[in-house]
Design a binder for these strands. Structure first.
Lengths: 230, 230
DNA sequence: GATGATTTGTACGTATGTATA
DNA sequence: ATATACATACGTACAAATCAT
């Protein structure tokens, strides 16, 4: 039962640590678009060998955060404000599709659980436990994805959410936005429960659009600053 | 201007060769779902070291052809008939979405080029150059993706097509199917040119559904045989 | 255009973590 | 529960290719 000195996980897995660290730096703008990433330099900076760095690069490339060219190295992809806008739009389209499919396919049990989840989240609006709300939020959206009964659609949606995760996180830190978000969820869940796919799709698109607006308003300055390194 | 002795590429890049080879084997069913892939064994089989094999595993994992668990190895993902069905459905949804967006956003130049492409493909129906048709087919769909003016949507669509590529290839080897496909394209292109997003979406969904039917009818036996290794 | 320096791709050995007996 | 066996994760050394001079 004894814990490590740092209290962290029992299995670090360097390549994952590197990937997460680099992702954070790319998102924050510390590593601007077009910046070349040198294997040796990154390895030294993280205090590891080149091997886990290479694996991290593979992972980041699969998330299209960096681009790899044989024997030519990797560069970080463009994450301009327009690109982020596009990501939110794409997420809205994907989630809208999920909602439409889920509205027509969810089993009674799935609908009941979705309703429970929404109720639980409405109860969380007052208290400012943003981490818990974020967790519940992910779960709610997961339930909608699963409601499509299509593993590939679920996978696409989750992959897209991973790409947006860093942005959505900072966007759910406001009490107002949490309240707004919960209201939007109510409309979405209602539509799904009533088997109204068209309405569910529309509400989900608007929901993501609102998330985008909130984020972009808060981070436009920072994002624009990161755009300088073309 | 001199060429290599084998005429092939000047830079093989082992890890890519391994990844492509394994992909082919997974698709063909030689490596059934649930099959464990041992680094050392694969390395010996391909006559290389474990390093490029590891990188190939990372790539395959990003295409969700295999699953990786830390310190536990990799296993090939399920590619049962139902899974393939889901893939085609997902592709239909994604392409439908692309068509809807493209119908509303394409520039005049983009629409003109789309029309040209369709005309070119209609001229190819008689001759049985399936490779050329497949190439033109990819281009047509690419133009629709690009018409969304959203890089993330384009990326999702292309990634999905990569996953389906092996199946679609064998499905376009019939002269009848090529003719059918071209007719379906005509309806899709017409809808896009008329800015009718709803119609474009519907026709694209049906188009993919027909592709799925053709493939599944031809390969159901082989796919079911590959399902045995659960 | 050829040569050298730098960087990526690959091979192989060691250590850590997992799953068996 | 401890220990052993095994495969993976990581580190280091060499080869191949790109770029800079």
């Amino acid at each position: 039962m004894s814990m490590s000195s740092t209290m962290a996980g029992p299995r670090p897995v360097r390549s994952k640590v590197i990937a997460d660290g680099l992702e954070e730096e790319i998102i924050s703008g510390a590593l601007p678009a077009g910046c070349k990433l040198d294997e040796t330099a990154v390895a030294q900076r993280f205090g590891v060998s080149r091997t886990p760095v290479r694996e991290a690069f593979l992972t980041l490339a699969s998330r299209s955060l960096v681009e790899r060219m044989p024997y030519r190295g990797v560069v970080v992809c463009d994450l301009s404000l327009e690109r982020i806008d596009q990501m939110f739009e794409a997420m809205g389209e994907i989630e809208g599709m999920c909602g439409r499919l889920a509205a027509g396919r969810m089993t009674t049990v799935e609908r009941a659980r979705l309703w429970d989840q929404q109720s639980a989240m409405e109860a969380m609006v007052g208290q400012d436990d943003f981490a818990a709300y974020d967790e519940a939020n992910s779960l709610l959206h997961d339930m909608i994805y699963a409601g499509t009964h299509n593993d590939d659609v679920v996978e696409i949606a989750k992959a897209m959410r991973v790409k947006l995760a860093p942005f959505r996180r900072s966007q759910l830190q406001s009490r107002e936005r949490v309240a707004e978000s919960t209201l939007e969820h109510a409309a979405i869940v209602d539509a799904i429960l009533e088997h109204d796919g068209v309405s569910a799709e529309r509400h989900l698109r608007r929901h993501l659009l609102n998330s985008a607006k909130t984020f972009i308003a808060a981070h436009s300055a920072r994002a624009q600053r990161a755009e300088s390194g073309t």
